[in-house]
Amino acid sequence: MATVQVENVRKIYTRDTQTIVVLDGISLEVPDGEFVALMGPSGSGKTTLLNLIAGIDRVTSGMIRVGDTTVTGLSDAALAQWRSRHVGFVFQFYNLIPVLTAVENVELPLLLTRLTKRQRRERALTALRIVGLADRAKHYPRQLSGGQEQRVAIARAIVTDPSVLVADEPTGDLDAASAEDILTLLDTLNRDFRKTIVMVTHDPRAAARAHVERHLDKGVLAASVERHVPASRDAHEVPA
């Protein structure tokens, strides 16, 4: 069963009197545990598609289903609650809260749960251990490198153990070595923790780490490139 199903989605923006069709009847299926890269030129609609899958934007028409939930049918409040449980979002510019330490940033989504303070802190530290930054837990974002900030952002995205990770150009603001580390981390999360990942990227090297490449152009899905998927996958959950 597909984790993410996108059916005939259209997204139209209206600016003053101008109507812009960003996505024009997109249909896409991302199977459970898949790692998909969305590529395309600027303005092709790939980030918009990612935002729609993550439930942070609304479709003009069409349907998006993630797991058992029809995301497009949820109210704003229900959608927020759904995001907190089922989606981890990784931004290009990390978007960590500067006044919070690394562990506090990672802990932020857990404030919406019923976990105790101690449980929240343990989970956040576990997530930081997974991304290899347990020793930087008390550091503020300004005290971390770009690559480390992105690792913290990924820890924040996985701390609630979501089924889907969406990443909007996660390596776009990093040097080659840091980008490689981040891609390896995403690969690990996909392979070892069986996270479904949908990643938007301009970088062919980043896209090459995905199992499937989907290309968007002018709001329409074009070519699809599939790669060999490793046969053995030992699924894990983020340990509580």
Partner: peptide
């Protein structure tokens, strides 16, 4: 604005 957007992305409702 960005932080508020991030909070909402993480699942904070508008009311919260």
């Amino acid at each position: 604005r960005t932080e508020i957007a991030v909070l909402k992305t993480l699942g904070f409702s508008g009311g919260r």
